[in-house]
Amino acid sequence: MIPQRQKQQTGLYALVDGIPFQLPVNSEKTPALIAVFPINADRAKKLMPGKEVHPFRLWNQGLLVITVIDYQITDIGSYIEFSIAIACTHGAKPAPRLLPALFMKQYGTGQYVFDLPVSTEISVKGGKGIWGMPKHQANLDFLIGDRTVSSQYDLDGQLVMKIEVAKPAKAWFPLKLAAANYCAFRGMLMKSYIYFQGKLGFSLFKPGSARLILGDHPCIQPLKELEISPEPIFTGFFPEITGILDDHFENWFLGYDKPPKQKPEGLESVVNLGLGKEWLSPPKALPKDDDENLNNGIEKYESTSVNS
C-alpha cells in the first residue's frame, strides 16, 4: 500500500520553505472521524474547478465527505484538520456510476477538497504552499465523548459547521487505505496522496448515526445548495491511525471554456506565513448543545455569531 520510495526515505531529513521534515512525512497516535452524506451531484459539479474533475456518482447521487483528524504527533506539531470534500473522479469525461469505487486508479478516484481549516499557521504554510491544499487557520475542536465524537469549525466569530457521529461500541475493522486529494491553487489542480492504517468502527446506512449542523458564515453557503441528505450512508471513527503524506504530487493547469475573470488564490497567501504552532481559541459551544444525545439530520444554525 505504501510506495517503496516512501519506505526508503526513513532516516532522511528535508527542509522545504523553511519547514523541517523528518522523512517520510508521517503522523502517529491520531484519532479521526468521518461521515459521508448523499448530495445532488449536478449541483456539486458547479463547485468543482476546471473541466476534468467530476463528482463521483453513487447511483444518481454525489457524496459529501466530512473528515476530521486530530493530529497528535507530526513533524510540525499537533493540530486539527477539518476536511470538507466531495468524492470525485479525474479525467476528460465523467466516469460511469459505481465503477470508480472498484477501479480507483483508472478513474482517478479521490476527493475534491472544498475547504480545509486547520489549527496552526505552520500547517497552513506547509499544506497550502507545498501541496496546494486550501488550508487556513480557524477555531476548531475535536471531542470524544461516551456516545459521540464531534468537531466544530468556527471562523471570524461565526459557526461554519459542526459534525457529530455516533461513537461505535468497538473499533474492530483493520483498514489500510490510500487516498487521493484534489485541490485548486494558483490556477492549477493539485493532486496529493496519503496512506493510512488503523482500526475502524463504523456504521452503514444507519439512521441517527450522524448530525451535521451548517452555520451561517458566507464560506459555507455554497454547500447549502447541494441538497445534503439528512441520513449519512457511512460514519466511522478511528481511535488511532498512523499515516504518511506522500512528498510526490501532481498538478495540471485548470482549463475553462472561457478566459477566467477572477484571479485565483496564489503564493501571496503563503509567502509571508511563519512557523507558528499556536492554536486559535476553541469554538464556543452552541446553545442547547448535548454531545451525549445524537439527533441525526441537517440543521441550520440561526444565530449570526456564536461568540455574541
Rank of each mutant, 00 (worst) to 15 (best):
A169Y: 14
R5A: 14
E121S: 07
I122G: 01
T242M: 12
T120H: 05
Y193S: 09
C88R: 00
I86A: 01
A285Q: 10
W172S: 13
P100R: 07
G297Y: 03
L102C: 14
G127R: 02
W59R: 13
N295I: 10
P207S: 15
P3A: 06
Q106K: 15
V118A: 01
A87K: 03
R211Q: 10
Q221E: 10
G91F: 07
E227R: 06
I69N: 03
I80F: 01
A180D: 10
I144C: 07
L280K: 08
L155Y: 00
V149W: 01
A184M: 05
I84H: 00
G127W: 01
S83N: 13
D289G: 09
G129C: 08
I241N: 03
W131S: 03
W252A: 11
K46P: 09
H90R: 12
Q4M: 15
V68Y: 01
V118M: 02
G145W: 06
N139W: 02
P207K: 11
Q72A: 12
G108Y: 03
M190Q: 08
Y301W: 15
L99H: 08
P168E: 07
K167R: 13
K224H: 08
Q111P: 04
K105T: 13
D156F: 06
G274N: 10
G266I: 08
R5L: 11
L98C: 10
I241R: 05
S151Y: 01
R43D: 05
P55I: 05
L226S: 00
L23A: 09
T148M: 06
I69D: 02
I130W: 07
K128M: 06
F103P: 05
H136A: 06
R5D: 15
V149G: 01
S269Q: 09
E250P: 03
Y112F: 12
K263F: 11
I220R: 00
L47V: 04
S209H: 04
A166T: 12
L275Y: 12
S209Y: 02
S281C: 12
I73F: 15
S27K: 09
F82V: 02
K288E: 12
F196Q: 10
V25L: 11
V160R: 01
K135S: 02
G145S: 11
L47Y: 03
K176N: 13
W131K: 04
G236S: 08
Q8V: 11
P260I: 08
G266S: 13
Q106M: 13
A184T: 04
A285G: 10
D146H: 15
T67N: 05
F173N: 11
L175R: 11
K51P: 06
I241P: 00
L175D: 07
C183A: 13
A95G: 09
